[in-house]
Design a protein around this nucleic acid. Sequence first.
DNA 1: ACATGATTTGTACGCCGTACAAAGAACCGT
DNA 2: ACGGTTCTTTGTACGGCGTACAAATCATGT
Lengths: 236, 236
Amino acid sequence: MSESGRRRPRGPRRALTENEILDAALSLLDQGPDAASVRAIAARVGVVPNAIYTYFPDKAAVVDALVERLLGEVDHDVFADRAQPWRERVEALALELRAKLSAHPGAVSLMVGSRMDGPIAQALTERLLQLLADAGLDATDAARASYLLFVYIFGSLVLEVADVQHKVPLPAESERIATRQLAFSARPPEHFPLSAAAAATMAGYISTEQYLWGLRRILEGLAARVATGRKSVGSG
Amino acid sequence: MSESGRRRPRGPRRALTENEILDAALSLLDQGPDAASVRAIAARVGVVPNAIYTYFPDKAAVVDALVERLLGEVDHDVFADRAQPWRERVEALALELRAKLSAHPGAVSLMVGSRMDGPIAQALTERLLQLLADAGLDATDAARASYLLFVYIFGSLVLEVADVQHKVPLPAESERIATRQLAFSARPPEHFPLSAAAAATMAGYISTEQYLWGLRRILEGLAARVATGRKSVGSG
DNA sequence: ACATGATTTGTACGCCGTACAAAGAACCGT
DNA sequence: ACGGTTCTTTGTACGGCGTACAAATCATGT
């Protein structure tokens, strides 16, 4: 509506769109977190580096837009059904976020230090708050819980991509677990008996199974908050 | 012991020690996450940049050593007392880690993407596993729980330093909360009613209070695991 | 005394983000 | 039709980065 309303500005037609730039950045990111330099992006879309600065004020803006775009790919339907139990809805959201974001490990690295407060991120927050309100949490607890979940989901992702560091493409989960198993076994058992004994479990740190295990402990802790009500539990 | 055993190598006496380099890096980091360049570190300790590479193979090694050093500053005594309730011990550990690490926000940024698997990190893991075993968790659950706690603690720190981004020195907690309050209030309430209503709570996201609230929910979830035992709860 | 081997330095390469001015292209009023 | 205006794109350049390489320096073992 406002699109068709304003007429074309004076200068020459723009050679690109913001989206083409983000496309280029995203595909470059899949070959390493540092691969998405302004110069590389520009080369990919066929312009000289400075041309990018007509579309974005600086590189940080490109990153911010990219993060928004990735968050925009999250399918809200998977957790929108209010007839479902709230825990399953949170699990669905957590899995969806992990699936969409860990598909681009390099982008996750960029998210660290990005503000993540664009409109899409806000909308996602709002949805999560709604979900937690549905669960029976009061407004304060819902806000606190949403941040807790955000920390868990985001923290898991960051540690996951840190684990594979620059290696691309992302190895299969089974392969990563095997690699970690080797690393943990190399620890001296005389100094770290518990670590050695738990090696098999710890090797599975980076796994969907562990991700869900931790999430379920959190949901358990939140459920206690729902059942008994805020006032009667004194630890907040 | 092995120190006095080996004699001095041939060349000239080294002008610095690894620790001096790390000192320089750490103090530089306190004026921004990108301030600790190899060149800046070298200038700080009074050598030409390349000299650093006699002490560390590359910059990543400097970062790894720095992370180890920071983790080494964690006071194990605050959670070592096995007579204390295990939850309080975990809280003490979490607070100690947060205190020691958020004292150097720039360093936290560097930790992202570092392996954090040096001997000191391993020792810390071992201690945490011991703590969770004391709590009554079996070996598998203890391993899983330790990673869950690690994700939470580390994720909180990462988001905390991302919030203040480059601003140094770190503003006081109350000041940061006030700033966030303003930002949240600016969100359009017609689109995000729950966010708007929860603005006050959400402004306190980055706070010791929120940090402990989330931690306590996690501990609550873990406690259920202790009380009923692993076999009788089916969600693992 | 001299050869040996580690340390430090000088210089250089190829990246990075981006500032600045000039050139080119599409629109406007005349 | 045309010159002026305004926007985009380009060329060039700066200061920074990590670090590779060879030369110089220096304390040691022989």
